[in-house]
Each structure stands twice: as structure tokens, then as C-alpha cells.
Design a protein around this nucleic acid. Structure first.
Lengths: 148, 148
DNA sequence: TTGTATGCAAATGGTTTGCACCTAT
DNA sequence: ATAGGTGCAAACCATTTGCATACAA
């Protein structure tokens, strides 16, 4: 990708050196990451970048739609680079914390069914946890030695 | 309900005076509440009860399955008394924060569909947000004067 | 030039923990 | 008797914020 693509991370906001480093670090993650992990990744390249700046950048990126919050891990918010447009949900692998995107499994029936309770659904959150192919294979290997 | 029913809140753990007060306060909530709100409710009846005790009690009740976490509001965890057995999900009214329970809208198709991505789903979180009948009615009344 | 972003450090606020004392069982 | 629960206060830790300075536009 060319450097200008970093601009897309922050929408139409200013593109500064710290933000370039942050955008690059985000793109280096395979899956979901915490802000703390992002801070570490950024620090490795740009040590002068402050924690607050990363938090603010994450907020900006989330607002711009280039980052999505996908639940939390150990009390810290989890984020993932989002390149899928429109309504969708996430598959979070609890082995490697990589995140993939999936279509919304909720159909009209849900709305109808819930409407029977006189409840108007305006929003919903769905996150599917499990194991990706790689981690599932790994787990089945150690299964008999470790036990269930 | 008789006093002994409070025991069900904490499983087979000891039933103490603070826990009795906490269990009673929990039952007085119509819907979801934060620990802070629970602390206030308990304090009104049993002022000597400490915050840490309430937090610990909430943890115990959650472990016992009598309390369920249903997302968060303003950075605080939301809990609700759970009297429904088995797998189900929640309808959270963003007007009055009352919570009702609903059947799982996910069918076999979801598992199948996701399996196509070589992803094994082990857990999922679903929370539906919206307005209950009461709040929907209230909102539609003020709709034209407030707008939006 | 000027509004926006940054870095630092301190503040915030929900939640947890250490510890000495108490109590249900 | 004793494991487990309590209250207090301090510790923790993710996240936010105030403020003076730096910089993209």
C-alpha cells in the first residue's frame, strides 16, 4: 500500500507523523489488539509517541469507521481493523485472537419474534467466539496429551 | 418470597446479613443495574455494607448463575437478575434499562454458514437493544415536539 | 497563520486486593 | 473451631483530560 492510504484510517483529519506510525502499526496486526498492545507496537518504531495520543488516535479511527471495537479481553477493549463495509459481525478466535468478518445471522424472523414481546429492536451486538482452522488443528493435536 | 429464597442467590455459599441485604436489593430492581446502583440500594437499608462486599457478592452471584452480565453502560458493568434457565439472550431497553429474556435467534444455519469459513463457534454473545412497549409509547408522544 | 494534534503527567473511576476482625456452619 | 465473609482503605489499571508546545493545512 502507498503511504497515502494511511489517510483513510483517520478520515479527513490531519495526517501527522505519530498517526502515520499508528496506522502502520494497526495494519501490521493480523487480528484483534488492545490499545496497550498497539502502544507497544508503535513505541517500537516511534518511541516518543505518547499513550494518550494512541488512545486519541484509536478514538478517531473508530469514529472514521476504520477501526471496530470487538468486545474486550481481560478488561481492555479489543479493536480490529475493519475493511468490510456495511452491517456485519465478527468471529473472534480465542486461540490467536484473529478476527474475521461474517454476515449478520439475524433475519426478519428475529425482529418479528421479538416484536411479539412488544419490543422494538434498534440495535444488536453479536460476537461469535471460537477457533479458527489453524488453532482448531493445533488444539486437536495436543488434545490427548493435555486433556479436556 | 420467603427469606430462604435468598440462599439461591449465592448457591451453596454462606448466607450472611450483608448478603441478605444485597439479595433483597437485587430483587428490588426491575431491570439492569450497575454495581454502583446496587451499592446505593444496599446502603439505604444497610449503610455499613462496604463497596467491596457488594462487588464480591456480585461475583459470587454471577458464578452461582443467579446474576447475569448484560453488557455495560457508561463504562460500568450492567447486571440483571436471571431467573431463566438454559441458553438465552437479552433484550435491553435503552429507555428504562429493563431487561427481558428471549430465545436464542441463532439456528443451525449460522453454525453451518460459519463452518464454511473453517471456524468452529464455541460461544456467542448476543444482546438486542431497543425500546420496550412503555418507552416506545412515551417516545412516540414526544417525537414531534423534540424531533430526531 | 491557525486550528488541530501531541506529549507529559496528573486525574478519574470502576474494580480488586491486603489485612485484621468477625461469624455462619 | 475454622473456613469463609466483611469493612476499610489503599492499590490497580485502563482510559481521559488539562495544558503548554509543535505542526499540518
Amino acid at each position: 500500500m502507498n503511504a497515502n492510504e494511511n489517510h483513510s484510517h483517520f478520515g479527513d483529519k490531519r495526517l501527522t507523523a505519530p498517526r502515520r506510525a499508528i496506522a502502520a502499526a494497526v495494519d501490521r496486526f493480523d487480528g484483534a489488539f488492545t490499545v496497550d498492545e498497539l502502544v507497544d507496537a508503535v513505541s517500537a518504531v516511534s518511541p516518543s509517541t505518547g499513550t494518550a495520543t494512541v488512545y486519541r488516535a484509536v478514538g478517531t479511527m473508530e469514529a472514521a469507521g476504520s477501526l471496530e471495537r470487538v468486545g474486550s479481553r481481560d478488561g481492555s477493549a479489543l479493536y480490529v481493523r475493519c475493511c468490510v463495509e456495511g452491517h456485519h459481525h465478527h468471529l473472534v478466535c480465542t486461540g490467536c485472537w484473529k478476527v474475521s468478518h461474517t454476515a449478520c445471522p439475524l433475519g426478519e424472523e428475529t425482529t418479528q419474534q421479538v416484536a411479539a414481546d412488544s419490543f422494538v429492536v434498534t440495535e444488536h451486538e453479536i460476537t461469535l467466539y471460537g477457533l479458527c482452522a489453524g488453532c482448531a488443528a493445533q488444539r486437536s493435536q495436543t488434545e490427548d496429551s493435555v486433556g479436556g
